[in-house]
Design a protein around this nucleic acid. Structure first.
Lengths: 210, 210, 210, 210
DNA sequence: TCATAAGCGAGACGGTACGTCGTGTCTTACG
DNA sequence: CGTAAGACACGACGTACCGTCTCGCTTATGA
């Protein structure tokens, strides 16, 4: 199951994961990305300079550019590494529990990486490859998780398969991300509960009652 | 009624609107912002240069920097001007119609200004003032519109006031914006219809049946 | 006699001199030039800005440019005004006394206006008019004074007219100016005495002894 | 003997001379300075732009500013390089010949670098370091040459050591430089001859006759 | 064992944009 | 009308960063 979750971009990175402990150069790479992430969070995309990352890491610019051909790539890689290890939320046994768990995880992640995501978003406009990478990583991964949760709910008989809508499978994480990134009202636990209890569950289970 | 819709920021701006036609310097300012917006849409934030805007407008850099102390301010102003005149969606007489209309307007606006919004979003991280400005402009304005629509629906007896939830009043526009800005699946009419028909209306009217 | 001393450039300015007390606008003009001179001495040509002069004088740039069409003209005018009133050294009755007096006056003037002279010199490279003006003012004026002194000495029988050389009539002031402007060893009274006693007088009176 | 002629500043520079041919970066530096000098002669200090030099040399502004922290430093360096290689005038065997030779060399150099010298002069007012550099380079170098010439004349018995005066050792070059830079009457061969024959030699040899 | 290479730090380089400042022209509004 | 105020087009200043490059130096392998 896990394998399915990993799209190309995701795999591209995770393939090296095992090497990280054995191969010293991947440790270095990870360190560089970590510093990138740190400076990114602190100063934002524009005010982040590859030079500063190199200096702080006592590396040279050539080393940076050998690994990531441009600042945008560097930032993307840092972002991916920063979000890679986010655990896939565990199953709780009930649809409501699973959704709340997804919401909770989304909130945490989107708050933590707010600046980075904004930076990557901004870069996406010019970089179709980045667009795809993000989509593959986030869109697909998210879809898999939610599909899994809903499928389990259907299997448990909690909802009808007909209530599932392709168009809005990411309504929960999407809205929460919106609240973190765009609006000035970051999501709280109440937000998650409200979306799940007053919107999603009525919608998903509404058909049942009829 | 219209007055209520306009938050402070909105009013603050629209108050000058009349001046724009009478005062020549505001025409010039508007022209500069329009060019900024154009180049911004075309090339994105990073690849936009103040110099290019000035050149295209046959203005000088000093003129630009006299009005907007930095590139970020310029872009924000351009964005605000670009979205200022977005008409408030008309009332259709039914909750469903109003919501669809809001969704449609949100889709159009967020698609049109996608790159600009991403750029402004990115800038927001460093500029708390920008944060507030955006919130005032978008958060409040959006809230007013939706509150109005829902209040009308309550008045019409379509829904119970108790079904309205502060936490998620912007679920519809929020999700649509997310789809435009973040996900790789820009919203379509189907998306709007799906959110309204299978999510919002069941949620809002669900309480009725009980 | 005085009239002869005044070349074109000199006259151009001094013609207004009488007006200065009666016509208020010339007082203003003199004030502007004085401020220019002051800032010039303080900051040098490059770091002097017309804007600063205008601001300090509570005048507007237009006022400055109406009177002096460029920064160079302004500086030249300021310099001329600054040196205009330098009294022609009085006659002492002996050649040696006169020469020492000329030397003393040159030293004082060239030290006082060192920066200004350097600035004007620099500007002269591009501005032939300035070249002429300077020449007329300084070259001619200087020549007249020295010619007068030497003629008096000849008349007194101190020297032969044949000892006077057109090519080097300004050797004394020239060398002193050089010492002030170019070398790092500004002239002292000893310098003047040395030039007069060990160089000029031997040269001028040498022919006598034979 | 030659070694004695070279003051510290002179040696300081000429020591690098050999490197210039072997080290490629010094060739580049020399090229940049040569272009600077060329544009400086052509347009003068104010109208010279670092950007233009960089463009003409197919270099970047950063390269210029890395080597010379400001336009003034650049111009000074260009001037020093431009005058560095000026050959020390050869000895002719007689005091008169040596003085004429010094005069001739001074005339040529001061005419050739008139604009540059004026620019550097102007800059000196604000830059004490430049003051010292110039003094070291020109004052000392000039003094060495003249001292050497006079010493040789003493040795030959042409003049008395007592006729030499510290205060005016640079009277010849000083006056010639004055004529080039300040006055509108650039020195000619006649000027040199007149100064040497009717002023310097009488002064230096006058004591003998008595 | 030694050399040949591969990766590295350091940092110069050509570009490009930034944001500032000064010049000289022009317009507006006041007296 | 002359003036103070100051906007404007132009263009140079000096800074910072990008992405490329060349240098030596260190390792780490392969003859």
């Amino acid at each position: 199951m896990t394998a399915i979750f990993q799209g190309r971009a995701y795999a591209m990175v995770t393939d090296h994961q095992d090497d990280a402990s054995s191969c010293p150069w991947n440790e270095r790479e990870a360190e560089l990305l970590a510093i990138t992430l740190e400076l990114l969070q602190e100063h934002g995309y524009d005010r982040l300079s590859v030079e500063a990352v190199a200096t702080k890491a006592k590396a040279s610019k050539a080393t940076m550019y050998r690994r990531w051909p441009s600042k945008a790539d560097l930032v993307l890689a840092a972002f991916i590494q920063g979000t890679r290890d986010t655990a896939i939320p565990p199953r709780t046994g009930s649809l409501r529990g699973d959704l709340l768990e997804i919401g909770r995880a989304t909130c945490q992640q989107s708050k933590e990486h707010m600046r980075t995501m904004r930076a990557v978003l901004n870069e996406m406009s010019h970089n179709p490859g980045l667009q795809d990478a993000m989509q593959e990583k986030f869109g697909l991964q998210r879809k898999m998780v939610i599909d899994g949760v809903l499928a389990a709910a259907v299997e448990r008989g909690e909802i009808d398969a007909s209530a599932i809508n392709e168009e809005i499978f990411d309504l929960l994480p999407g809205y929460l991300v919106f609240r973190s990134l765009v609006s000035d009202r970051p999501p709280t636990e109440d937000t998650v509960r409200a979306v799940v209890d007053s919107v999603l569950l009525p919608s998903l289970m509404g058909a049942r009652g009829r």
